[in-house]
């Protein structure tokens, strides 16, 4: 017995507007491919270039709560701001972030990362110095690699000390595309 798409949509909308969802998610289109977006009661909690499986949903539930539900309405604001960013109409995101479950060092690095402005780059070493751990460039690289909220927390703006792009969790093509969008690489 199938549930009609219309009924399914109405349930998901009602769940979201009644505030019964701990974390709502959806997959949205973007110029760098489909993006998985998860928004909890505290804010944007996850953004990913990769398709999420059951264990990814479990990991989100582990800090946000068990009521994880696909809910297009829950990601409306994020979708809007990302659309504006990709259309070059937005340089700063006006979103609260949910960093629950992350280690204090990770949070301090992500906090410093969030202050790297649109259209500029920094290095792993400079970011490490900014959080008072000048020798921890490699650890900073690990934090970038595991960044739960790329694009909004702009790990694409972090490059090697020689200016080489080094790497990107979403693949180097996407890092190049984002830096081109911001006018860094022309």
């Amino acid at each position: 017995m199938t549930v009609s798409p219309d009924l399914d949509r109405r349930f998901r909308e009602a769940a979201s507007s009644l505030g019964l969802v701990d974390l709502g998610y959806d997959v949205i289109d973007s110029p760098v491919g489909p993006l998985f977006v998860g928004v909890s009661t505290k804010g944007l909690a996850a953004l990913s270039f990769h398709q999420q499986d059951d264990s990814d949903l479990e990991r989100l539930a582990s800090f946000a709560g068990p009521r994880v539900l696909r809910s297009p309405r829950a990601v409306d604001q994020v979708r809007r701001e990302l659309d504006e960013y990709f259309a070059r109409r937005r340089r700063i995101f006006d979103l609260s972030l949910d960093l629950r479950g992350l280690a204090p060092f990770t949070i301090s690095v992500l906090d410093a990362l969030g202050k790297v402005p649109f259209g500029e780059t920094t290095t792993y070493g400079a970011l490490a110095a900014r959080v008072g751990r000048p020798r921890a460039a490699r650890a900073v690289g690990t934090v970038m690699n595991r960044n739960r909220i790329p694009i909004v927390l702009p790990c694409h703006r972090v490059v090697g000390s020689t200016g080489a792009l080094v790497g990107y969790g979403g693949g180097l093509d996407r890092k190049v595309a984002l830096l081109e969008l911001e006018g860094v690489l022309l």
């Binding site: 017995m1 949903l57 539930a61 009521r67």
Partner: peptide
């Protein structure tokens, strides 16, 4: 036993719930 994310619970049981209700 761990509680699954609601989405998985919903996907697993919605068809049977619909059958019962109809």
């Amino acid at each position: 036993v761990a509680i699954p994310p609601f989405e998985l619970f919903y996907e697993e049981h919605r068809a049977e719930v619909m059958r019962l209700l109809r």
